[in-house]
Design a protein around this nucleic acid. Structure first.
Lengths: 300, 300
DNA sequence: CGCCCCTATCGGAGAAGCCGATGGCAGGAT
DNA sequence: ATCCTGCCATCGGCTTCTCCGATAGGGGCG
């Protein structure tokens, strides 16, 4: 059994075909075909159904899939450990956390704030659903998300608290209304991200308490776009406080004085109890975030 | 990376030399030497220190060792799963449990008493220390031992209770003493296994309550030898009841009527929370033992 | 000092890996 | 219906790897 064959198999399943996989791997198509034949001879069973428009894993192939991944992961971890390199910590996070909160934590971690443990860190940014999948499959060591979301039976810790705040540019009409009433807010048009995005969920949950008459003026594709639109005076938005910390600091955004009805927010870490070399630094990092977060991002 | 190279490496470390490993593997000595060179070139670092009397793993080699084992284990599990075979359940147990208690459990398990889950089972018999090591290293899925022993932070369950009993051959003088007093017992010479053996530990713990004046007449190398010596009228012994169940049944041994001061005994299962195919049948087996044991081996 | 056991190296035979080219096959466009 | 296109398997070749037997070097031990 050679890892090349497993890589080839994964690439083929990933790419949906042998030709595409070959190009991606830098092999000739015939070579990948050979590798698969070798793999199937070795395993004693076909792992791919070939058709004229591509390939689909057989039942045996589907059983092989997770093992191939684990095998390659283990191979990587082995090489890293044997060569004496620092362990690799594979972290996943939502975009906003990766942008605004995680960097401080990782910097502190890098500077030894978590003790003697160090690690090389990769950060994968994707949706919460995919983060949880990758965590379950062992392709990530830990993920950082907002709120609790779907059930997870592994270790979990709240590593920070924040709140959703109502922000506008200083030039926005709402910014100069004092005192601010709920009716003023209800008359404002909001910008939100599209349905399915976790920030839209936060908006919906927060906005529910503001009443049913919230107006939605605009839908943007990303949190970053939404934030920049708000800075440019395009409207108001409900956003996690930490995601606009820099703008609040610089005065590009102002936080409207409306405390009631805005949902509290927790930053949660979820991870896998591993026995690999990443276990110790991971534990240290989680403890670090638990220690740092409350001070830096506590609810006002 | 090829599993052949890992197998070669493990064999060399195991055998203490390249030549011995080559013979064991069925390769020529030069071939194993080649394989190791390939492995070291691939990893970028030497893994063995060669001397004129054999080989010793380098530091990097010691780091490689557990990964090589895990890799080969994973390879085996993969082949088994892909080919659609039943999962493999790797069990470890003390000699006495493997002799007397485990077979009934495994038979019941095989007959479907644990539900639809089935598995091929291997039983490894060795010392409690080694059992725990192998469990920690992931080379065993579950171990069955007596009493609690050293700390283990994984899942644990008491799957049976028993007690230590005082037995002799029917012809032994003590067998005809009625009523039996503690002084009679204290005057008897006991046979025990050597220090370090778990049964010696049991003896020491049980005997403590009988007083300091217990006489030790003979030291044997194994529990089986001790049992047979007892059957042959050589003396008295303190033994777990289940380990002499057959002899008590057939009348080859008699249980002396001395209840006080004999330590209770628990059969414990310890296992790893795994995500592999053996997880489900393992759970079923543990539940089966919990259900069956109290009835079959309850303290009198 | 010679012997013995260990490992590394060498050269050759066989196997495997990789490639480009070719051919078969199925589905969609003309 | 026919061609066209994209897919995969196969073939012949070259290269590389694998394994072997034989040989050489090197350190412990009598």
């Amino acid at each position: 059994m050679d890892t090349r064959q497993l890589r080839a198999f994964l690439a083929v399943v990933d790419a949906g075909g042998i030709s595409a996989a070959a190009e991606q791997l830098g092999y000739a198509q015939s070579s990948v075909s050979d590798q698969l034949r070798t793999l199937e001879r070795d395993l004693g069973t076909p792992v791919l159904n070939r058709t004229s428009i591509g390939t689909v894993p057989t039942e045996a192939g589907q059983r092989l899939l997770p093992y191939a991944r684990r095998m390659l992961d283990l191979d990587g971890e082995m090489r890293r450990t044997v060569s004496g390199k620092r362990p690799l910590l594979r972290i996943g996070a939502l975009q906003s956390l990766a942008d605004e909160w995680l960097p401080e934590m990782l910097t502190a971690f890098d500077h030894g704030a978590a003790g003697p443990e160090t690690a090389d860190v990769t950060v994968t940014v994707t949706s919460r659903t995919r983060l949880m999948e990758e965590l379950q499959e062992g392709r990530l060591d830990a993920v950082f998300t907002l709120d609790s979301g779907p059930a997870y039976d592994g270790p979990t810790a709240v590593v920070g608290t924040d709140r959703v705040v109502l922000v506008t540019a200083p030039s926005h009409p709402l910014a100069s209304v004092h005192p601010l009433t709920l009716d003023d807010v209800r008359a404002t048009e909001f910008m939100v991200t599209e349905i399915g995005c976790i920030y839209r969920q936060l908006f919906d949950e927060s906005g529910r308490d503001l009443g049913p008459s919230l107006k939605i003026a605009m839908i943007t594709g990303s949190l970053n776009a939404l934030r920049r639109l708000t800075v440019n005076g395009r409207g108001a938005a409900l956003l996690p406080r930490f995601s606009v910390a820099a703008e609040l600091e610089s005065g590009d955004l102002v936080m409207l004085d409306l405390k009631q009805g805005l949902a509290p927010l927790t930053i949660e870490a979820r991870w896998r109890d591993g026995i690999g070399p990443a276990a110790a630094p991971l534990k240290a990092l989680v403890e670090l975030t638990q220690k740092f977060s409350p001070a830096a991002w506590a609810m006002a």
